[in-house]
Computed example of a mutant assay.
Amino acid sequence: MTQSDQNQVLRMLPIIAGGLGGTLLMINRFFTPNLLASQARSDVVGVILSAFLILTGLLWQQIQPSSPDSVKLIGESRFELLPELSEIVKTELAWASSLLLTNTITKTIIIWYEGKVLLRRGILPSESQVQPGAILKRVLEKQKPIYLVDLKVYPGRIEFNYLPENTQGVICQPLGNNGVMILGANAPRSYTKQDENWIAGIADKLTNTLIINNFNKSDFRN
């Protein structure tokens, strides 16, 4: 049973308990020919408690909505780095991608910079070439991230053929003027505002590393 299923069961428990309690009270009343005053008072208390449980369960459904359904992404687990990168840059990219994969809903990471795919990590299809489409070009032009909360409803999803075909959500985070970090999730509407802020912070650190790399050629292997 997944965490989402367990949460759903817990949210339903007060409704189930309240409904069962009310049903048993009705059955007991039906089979009691001579109702005593004390029993009547007990029944009233029981009805109130059952109603309270049902109301609590309904409120939980509103306050704690179900988590978005996740899917198993179509692809294979991969970890690929551009060979000519220096060990310093490889270590930085590996560190950043590991943090994102283990601390957010992210299942796929692609870092595209100056026309090259520097890193592919997570669940990925065989297609490895990134051809910037309208969405990536807008991210680079506006220098603002774009979060596609439910990828399947966006016509522009066809440009993300380098992500698993059933990717549910995508964040495109700019890396300065020359690159984009593309994150894929296996559930729609799954990134929180805190996640987005954290992703932006990691992107800024990576951008700084890549800018230094761009002007310091010794950071590349010859």
Rank of each mutant, 00 (worst) to 15 (best):
S70C: 01
R41E: 14
V44L: 15
I54T: 10
F79S: 14
L85M: 05
S38K: 13
I54N: 09
E76F: 14
I110H: 01
R41L: 13
P65S: 07
Q62K: 15
S86I: 11
W95Q: 05
E76H: 08
I16C: 08
F52S: 13
K107E: 01
D43K: 12
L100C: 01
K90G: 14
E80M: 13
Q61L: 15
L101C: 04
V45G: 00
T106S: 08
L99F: 09
R78H: 09
E80R: 12
S77Q: 15
T56N: 09
G57T: 06
S97N: 02
S97C: 04
S42Q: 11
R29A: 15
I63Y: 09
E76M: 09
T23V: 06
G22S: 13
V89L: 00
L85S: 03
I74V: 14
I27V: 01
L85E: 05
P83H: 02
I111P: 02
L35C: 00
W95V: 05
R11W: 09
A94R: 14
F79H: 07
I109D: 00
T91D: 09
F31T: 06
N28R: 10
L24T: 04
L99D: 04
T108K: 03
L13R: 06
G21E: 06
L35N: 03
F52E: 08
S38Y: 10
S98V: 00
K107S: 08
I74T: 15
L49W: 11
L20T: 05
P65R: 10
A96S: 01
I110E: 02
V44F: 15
S67M: 06
T32G: 00
M12H: 14
A40W: 09
V45M: 05
G22L: 15
I110K: 04
Q39S: 02
Q62C: 06
P83F: 01
T102L: 11
L24A: 09
S42F: 12
Q61T: 03
T106C: 08
A94T: 12
V47P: 02
I111K: 00
I54Y: 12
G19H: 07
I110Q: 03
A17K: 12
L99A: 04
L10T: 12
F52H: 06
L100E: 05
I63M: 03
I109N: 02
S38G: 07
S67G: 01
I88T: 08
R78C: 11
L24V: 11
D69K: 12
L35A: 05
M12Y: 13
V89A: 03
W95I: 05
L100G: 03
S38C: 04
L73K: 10
L13E: 02
F31R: 14
Q61G: 13
I15E: 08
I63F: 12
T56S: 12
S42E: 15
V71M: 04
I54D: 08
T108P: 03
T106E: 07
M12P: 04
L35F: 09
L20R: 00
K90S: 12
T108M: 06
S66N: 11
S66V: 07
L59E: 07
I27W: 10
I111C: 01
P65H: 13
T104K: 02
D43C: 08
G46V: 13
P33E: 02
K72I: 10
V89I: 01
R41C: 03
